[in-house]
Every structure is written in structure tokens, then in C-alpha cells.
């Protein structure tokens, strides 16, 4: 089945169809925790994508060598290696961001998106496909984080990326910066995404019914 998918689809499916956060409900912990500001969200998404892409590539390359019984353990070691690299690179080149993200950089290791893709995709597909899939999932994660952190930052501090957007007269909604704000915003975002999917499906169904009814009417006329 996987062979029939085009390369473009392998990449694009991560953006919406199988968006890791909005559709698969994976990687919730970093999504909620670091989205206080857009900068943090972008940093987290890029670090996660880096780990995701390289671990998917390596796992896919050696997927035929790894014995089946120890595959999860091997995946975890590979992922942990890349997480360590990402952690040390961030600490050296962006100390402020690294401090803001704190323990959530090493916690990428237990991000279910990465292990999930390794188990569900990279262990069964060719390196190039896995690379595209990982990039797509990373982009999907990036979009979700930027949207969520954008909403939270603009409502809590009137800014996006530190640039003031809303006028001074706007009273900041402080709860957005607190954990409660993260849960509620993400809940509403999920609701909107569901609403969109449901109405899309309904429209599709109505179209089919209408086609069917029209055909029948034509037959009756004949």
C-alpha cells in the first residue's frame, strides 16, 4: 500500500491529513509546555524536526540489520544520541533559548512523534521515503506549535516574536501564559479542527446524495 503513495504525498500528509498534533494527538507535552512564546515554539519545533529527520533516516538505513526483539531499544538509543547533539548545539549557540526550553530539549527523547514515526514508518520504508515523511511530520509539528504559540503570545503579551501587534489599550489576558491557558487554547483549536473536518465530510456526503437524487430524477423523467 505504501508503495502506491507518491513522494509528494509522503511529505504533504504530515501537514494536515496526519498532522502529528492535530490529528494523531502525539507529542502533547512539548506542544503545551513550550508554547509560551513564538520563539520558543519555533526553537522546539526545529529541534524536534532535526531529531526526527536524522533518526528516521538512520533507522530506515539500518532497518534490515536490527533484530526485531531489540528494535525499540535500538530506536531509543539512536533518538537519544541525536537529542544529545541537539541539546549541546543549542546550549552552545543559543544559550537563552536553551535556558527557556529547559528540560524539554532532553525530553524530546520521549516525544511520541519520533518513536511513533520510527516504529510506524521508518522501520518499513526506504530511506528517501522516511526522510520525506519525517520532514512532513516535522513541518506539521512546526505549524501546530507556531499557531498555538502565536495565539498565546498575542493574547498574553500583545506581541508576536517580540514585535507589538495589538494596541496598548488591549488588556493582556494573563491566563494565556499559565498552564491553564495552554490547555484551553489547544482544546479550542482541536474543536475548530474537528468542526472543519466534520463540515467537510458533511458537504462531501451531501454532494453524493444530491448526485444520486439528480440521477434518479433524470431516470424518472426518461
Amino acid at each position: 500500500m505504501a508503495k502506491s503513495n507518491t513522494f509528494t504525498y509522503e511529505y504533504l500528509k504530515g501537514l494536515w491529513d496526519q498532522n502529528p498534533v492535530m490529528k494523531q494527538v502525539l507529542g502533547m507535552c512539548p506542544t503545551l509546555a513550550v508554547t509560551v512564546s513564538v520563539v520558543n515554539g519555533i526553537g522546539m519545533a526545529l529541534a524536534t524536526t532535526f531529531v526526527l529527520v536524522f533518526s528516521s533516516l538512520i533507522i530506515s538505513l539500518i532497518r534490515k540489520i536490527i533484530p526485531n526483539q531489540v528494535r525499540i531499544a535500538s530506536y531509543i538509543v539512536i533518538i537519544a544520541t541525536f537529542v544529545t547533539i541537539a541539546d549541546y548545539v543549542l546550549r552552545a549557540s543559543y544559550p537563552d533559548l536553551s535556558k527557556a526550553l529547559g528540560p524539554f530539549i532532553p525530553l524530546i527523547v520521549v516525544n511520541c512523534i519520533i518513536l511513533g514515526r520510527a516504529e510506524a514508518f521508518a522501520s518499513k520504508n526506504s530511506p528517501f521515503r522516511s526522510l520525506l515523511d519525517a520532514l512532513g511530520m516535522g513541518t506539521g509539528f512546526f505549524i501546530a506549535l507556531v499557531v498555538l504559540s502565536g495565539i498565546r503570545e498575542i493574547l498574553a503579551s500583545k506581541t508576536i516574536l517580540g514585535i507589538q501587534i495589538l494596541p496598548d489599550s488591549f488588556a493582556p489576558i494573563l491566563v494565556m501564559i499559565l498552564p491553564a491557558g495552554a490547555f484551553i487554547t489547544l482544546g479550542l483549536l482541536f474543536g475548530i479542527a474537528n468542526f472543519y473536518s466534520i463540515s467537510l465530510e458533511q458537504r462531501k456526503r451531501e454532494k453524493i446524495i444530491k448526485k444520486y437524487v439528480d440521477n434518479n430524477q433524470e431516470k424518472v423523467k426518461e
Binding site: 494527538v25 491566563v175 499559565l178 498552564p179 491553564a180 491557558g181 495552554a182 490547555f183 484551553i184 489547544l186 482544546g187 479550542l188 482541536f190 474543536g191 475548530i192 474537528n194 468542526f195 466534520i198
Partner: peptide, 18 residues
């Protein structure tokens, strides 16, 4: 309908966090 499942759970979690 659109809020059933995960969305309402997240909002409940938000209220618990509050």
C-alpha cells in the same frame, strides 16, 4: 459534536489546572 473526545478533555484539564 466537534468538541467531543480530546478537545473537551483538554478544556477540562485547563479548568483543573486553574
Amino acid at each position: 459534536k466537534a468538541m467531543r473526545g480530546v478537545p473537551i478533555t483538554l478544556i477540562t484539564a485547563g479548568l483543573l489546572a486553574l
